[in-house]
């Protein structure tokens, strides 16, 4: 087991290498010149050339890549072209809201979706089931930004229950303000995950309910509720956890939009601003960072399987 974990961690190195190559190539291939953006609308060709020189953008691509990878290996993700701050520092500044938003979203989604999907499976074909499925289709279909504004309109502007925008750190301002600010973004981002996870839970539990050991449990005289909790859900867990893992990957996209709608100073906003400004080092750094997080999450999910199902051993 330990050997397996070490192997998987070691494997992240070549994977990150490939990701780095792709990120570098894609950015260099896409149109737009950061030097021209920095220089502004009234710059001369010489100005642009001078800035390109300063940024190292006139070096051959191979040299640029080499320089970049070399500094990566020293833990240096580069320096923002515009703010002049190290990318690592920018990420560190912005990481808290994003992490906490992701965490509340996942917790809330799982807490709602798993019971909902299980209930739908248990009552398959009933009105409750149809309602859950309808919600699920709806949840998939509503774009995050539409939902975000609708929620703001209802809960913040009309009912005045919750603040419109912004973020309060629980470490600085306490739990109350944090929760009141994070509620709407969490709801917004959760809807699609609840839809996804509830659907998967329903399918998975329905399948498991047909299994022989569920019949065995009934033959023992076990009550339906306990048959469901002790025998069905536990066995249905592996595909559900897989979907949660996929969900976290999707989350990264959702975070960008949600943070913009709610004006949260997180990594999502950082991505958006960097893309608009063509701040290469930040974009590169963030993609690498997200890839790394994603690989670690996958490892974590694979390890979770071994706790859920004793037949899975690495």
């Amino acid at each position: 087991m330990l050997v397996y974990i070490l192997k998987r961690v070691a494997m992240t190195i070549p994977v990150m290498g490939v990701v780095a190559l792709f990120v570098f190539a894609l950015l260099r291939l896409s149109p737009g010149d950061p030097a021209a953006v920095i220089a502004g609308d009234f710059a001369t060709a010489e100005d642009v050339a001078r800035i390109r020189e300063q940024l190292g953008l006139s070096e051959p691509l191979v040299v640029q890549f080499g320089t970049w990878v070399w500094s990566l290996m020293q833990g240096d993700l580069g320096t923002s072209i515009f703010s002049g701050k190290p990318v690592t520092e920018l990420i560190a500044q912005r990481i808290e809201p994003t992490m906490l938003l992701a965490l509340t979203t996942i917790l809330f989604s799982v807490a709602v979706a798993v019971p909902l999907g299980t209930l739908a499976a248990f009552k398959a074909g009933s009105l409750i089931d149809r309602f859950v499925m309808l919600f699920s289709v709806g949840g998939f279909s509503v774009p995050v930004f539409v939902l975000g504004y609708v929620l703001i309109y209802v809960f913040s502007l009309n009912l005045r229950w919750l603040p419109v925008q912004g973020y309060r750190s629980p470490f600085e301002h306490g739990l109350g303000p944090f929760l009141s600010h994070i509620t709407l973004p969490t709801l917004t981002l959760s809807v699609i995950f609840i839809a996804l996870i509830a659907r998967m839970t329903r399918a998975s539990v329905i399948e498991v309910l047909e299994e022989d050991y569920v019949r065995t449990a009934r033959a023992k005289g076990q009550s339906e509720l306990k048959v469901l909790m002790r025998h069905a859900v536990r066995n249905a867990a592996v595909p559900i956890v897989t979907v949660i893992g996929i969900g976290i990957a999707l989350l990264i996209g959702g975070v960008v939009v949600t943070e913009s709608v709610y004006n949260i100073p997180g990594l999502g906003r950082l991505v958006l601003d960097a893309v608009l400004a063509r701040d290469y080092p930040i974009i590169q750094g963030l993609i690498l960072f997200f890839s790394f997080v994603y690989i670690l999450l996958n490892l974590l999910i694979d390890l979770t399987y071994t706790f859920l199902d004793p037949r899975i051993r690495y």
């Binding site: 019949r215 005289g221 009550s223």
Partner: peptide, 23 residues
């Protein structure tokens, strides 16, 4: 449910699948 197990009980064809694999 009370009678199942106490008064009557059942064994099945497939011992491979009749037991919960995760317990």
């Amino acid at each position: 449910r009370k009678l199942r197990g106490e008064k009557m009980s059942m064994i099945f064809q497939e011992p491979m699948t009749a037991l919960n694999p995760v317990a």
